[in-house]
């Protein structure tokens, strides 16, 4: 927090001085605090660009650092100016640029911070589906920065952040498991204020499309409920009804209609007969 405040003070130094001319005491106090923290945090505060600082914050481990060149290219930001309030100021904050003189109309620094976070998130959504962004995220995936799948039979395979909507402000971020191809809520509440749109609906699937070797190879298993070791019949009112959900077949073995191909077709029938026999 102190870092961010310092950065902002640094950026808006002139502005602050102008604003607080009438309150000399407070101005002095701010100055003292500023210099004091400068002394203690010398290494972190001044040298750290906003993007690196933002990604190092607690709860922001899911973010990749967007390359400056990507943000600087206006083409990549097409349309964002109409979505994000105080777009210009927010962009300046992200790029650590000195604010222009006419930016004094900003009522509060915290509003620009919020805008900068949203703008960064939306740029991030676009960046992580580029070649460079995918590579960065693939490294983070392999390092396990996004956590593991809570499903027992997925054997703690790594998950990737994924949104269900590309529009900001609809839903928080979810985690996609490439093994069970399902979405889960993050285990910690610290991720509850991360917008799903900052990762987008496409990224998770694009990642495994571009890097198919990242898809885990775990033998698929379906949970079989039992009582005293006996399977529960599917004819029971509380018997299994959702086993289809976790059925996983290699898509190579399936035709376009979802039928098992040729010789495997007999297997399929056998499997189902077996299942029926067991559950009866």
């Amino acid at each position: 927090m102190a870092h961010r405040d310092d950065d902002i003070r640094n950026l808006h130094e002139q502005e602050l001085e102008e604003d607080e001319d009438d309150d000399a005491l407070q101005g002095d106090y701010v100055g003292e605090e500023y210099y004091g923290s400068d002394g203690t945090n010398e290494s972190g505060t001044e040298s750290m660009p906003w993007i690196a600082w933002f990604c190092s914050l607690g709860g922001h481990q899911y973010f990749a650092e967007v390359a400056d060149e990507f943000v600087e290219d206006d083409f990549n930001l097409t349309g964002l100016s109409s979505v994000v309030p105080f777009y210009k100021e927010a962009l300046e904050m992200i790029l650590d640029l000195e604010p222009e003189e006419d930016s004094t109309k900003v009522p509060d620094v915290s509003i620009v911070e919020a805008s900068a976070e949203q703008l960064y998130g939306l740029i991030h959504q676009r960046y992580i589906v580029t070649r460079q962004g995918l590579q960065q995220m693939a490294e983070k995936y392999q390092a396990g920065h996004f956590g593991t799948c809570p499903r027992t039979y997925c054997q703690s395979t790594n998950v990737v952040p994924c949104g269900r909507y590309d529009l900001a402000g609809v839903e928080t971020v979810k985690l996609y498991c490439p093994n069970c191809q399902d979405l889960y809520s993050p285990p910690s509440s610290r991720y509850l204020n991360l917008d799903g749109a900052y990762f987008g609906t496409t990224f998770a699937h694009m990642l495994f499309h571009v890097y198919p070797e990242l898809v885990p190879n775990i033998q698929s298993r379906i949970y079989q409920p039992t009582i005293y070791g006996f399977k529960i019949s599917e004819h029971s009112r509380s018997g299994p009804r959702m086993q289809w959900l976790r059925t996983k077949v290699d898509p190579i073995r399936l035709d376009a209609q979802g039928h098992l191909i040729t010789a495997k077709g007999e297997d399929d029938d056998l499997d189902e007969d077996d299942k029926e026999d067991e559950s009866m």
Partner: peptide, 14 residues
């Protein structure tokens, strides 16, 4: 995705 859609059709059949 085509591969996923195929699996989903298989799941639907089951």
């Amino acid at each position: 995705l085509h591969d996923v859609a195929k699996q989903h059709r298989h799941q639907d059949r089951i």
